[in-house]
Design a protein around this nucleic acid. Sequence first.
DNA 1: GCCCATTTGTGCGTATGTATG
DNA 2: GCATACATACGCACAAATGGG
Lengths: 266, 266
Amino acid sequence: MDQDQASIGADLQRRLDHYVRPGIPKYMAMRDAIAHAVADGSWVPGLRLPTEVEWAATLPLSIGTIQRALRMLVDEGIIVRQQGSGTFVAGQPDESMHAPLHCRFIDDSGTGYLPVYPKIVDRHDVKEPGPWTDHLRCPRTLCIERVLAIGDEFSVFSRFYADPQRLSAFQSLPLKKLANENFKELIMRDTAQAIGRMDQYLSARRFEAPICKAIGVRSGTCGQRLDIRAYVGKGSPVYYQELFIPPNERVLHLARDGRDRGLAEG
Amino acid sequence: MDQDQASIGADLQRRLDHYVRPGIPKYMAMRDAIAHAVADGSWVPGLRLPTEVEWAATLPLSIGTIQRALRMLVDEGIIVRQQGSGTFVAGQPDESMHAPLHCRFIDDSGTGYLPVYPKIVDRHDVKEPGPWTDHLRCPRTLCIERVLAIGDEFSVFSRFYADPQRLSAFQSLPLKKLANENFKELIMRDTAQAIGRMDQYLSARRFEAPICKAIGVRSGTCGQRLDIRAYVGKGSPVYYQELFIPPNERVLHLARDGRDRGLAEG
DNA sequence: GCCCATTTGTGCGTATGTATG
DNA sequence: GCATACATACGCACAAATGGG
């Protein structure tokens, strides 16, 4: 075991201590420890991890338990394993990881998306109940309003609802910083899980006057409204979002989940 | 082991012989055997399966291998396991299983979908290439054109493309029978896998005259066009579909995948 | 409430097969 | 050919939940 492998092993051992809890299976603790190490950027894509036997010698886990944790991570797309070669942190070779989840309007080439320039309009607590209440089921709800400029063609209005206690970054980051962040990546860092499911509700609606004004369309414009319920893992709600999409000539790629690899594999 | 359990075990043993092949892992063969038994209706929802030890005594498989196969089936939602109780074929207690994948327009109550009345307009082979070519990659492509009446409110036009060699039911069934079938269920029976991924592409377009005529809107109508690439399992393409949705007042629930449980759990 | 057989869930250790370099 | 490393398979022991007596 060379020095790098040893340091990775030591790093994981420290992390494991935070995740082994009575009631939590060992394979799950190891899965969480590795997932967080990758999600927070400590372990970069392409990094080679120690072998099964190395880890079995270092950690208080058997080979079978380690294999089960690693198999889960493979299923989630977090690591890649190659027989005879080794185990590696999965990489996003292109920039599709940084692509937005929603508002993916296909560009003229047909192989990429129009750039999205977000601007935060407001961030506030919401008191009154709404469709997000049933979804999130949290004592407090944070709402972030944004205007998303699509290329230089048109703008989409967005309301993003989340539990500030669970996704603390959305509450704590200054607005200037938050504007430049990819929401999907923030969620991954806070939860170490990818968006695993989304229910989307589409309808044609007349937009309220303030929204029309914010996105620069004439008052009374009728466009698409997309309501989104997003989950991580097998069904744990993370956010609720409302999108107001004005009439346009583009094709919108509706994402299946947060692990989409962009258009290349489609 | 009572008589029923014994007969289930014997049934699986027969099926296993069809699936154990050199190169196919045993756990995968067992997974496929059970998945098909459930998909073709031989094993009905709620049926209790033999215990791990019973199967280990009957089949040439170890407990660990059996557990791995059953765990996969749990992840896929095909079976349910309860510690101390047993293993059961997963059930669709409501009719949501029979709900369509697409064209799920929410009804006035907000808890269900408007009924969909499909009518087959045409079935033919397509020679010329199109967006479905890259997706399906099959020598022949079958196209089924339908008019889907949504409640008694409006109609949606649909073109469904698939590989007739893979989904033989769509080729072989007489049109009268095909019209009454749920396409999603036909696919599950032919592949023993649920729709596991969908890429959807939404745009606003002016419909061609024949389509306008078929769904009873005035020529030149502009509405939503939804192109769908569907996959089973982790990324095996199964069909390509084009939907032409005229302007309407309803909310369309865009499905995440074929295992959606309807609105109740959303 | 308690005990107990049943059944699944977790964890360990080992052996062997197969792809990689 | 050979060592390495992941993949599959087996078997065992014990924990935890369930359901009935």
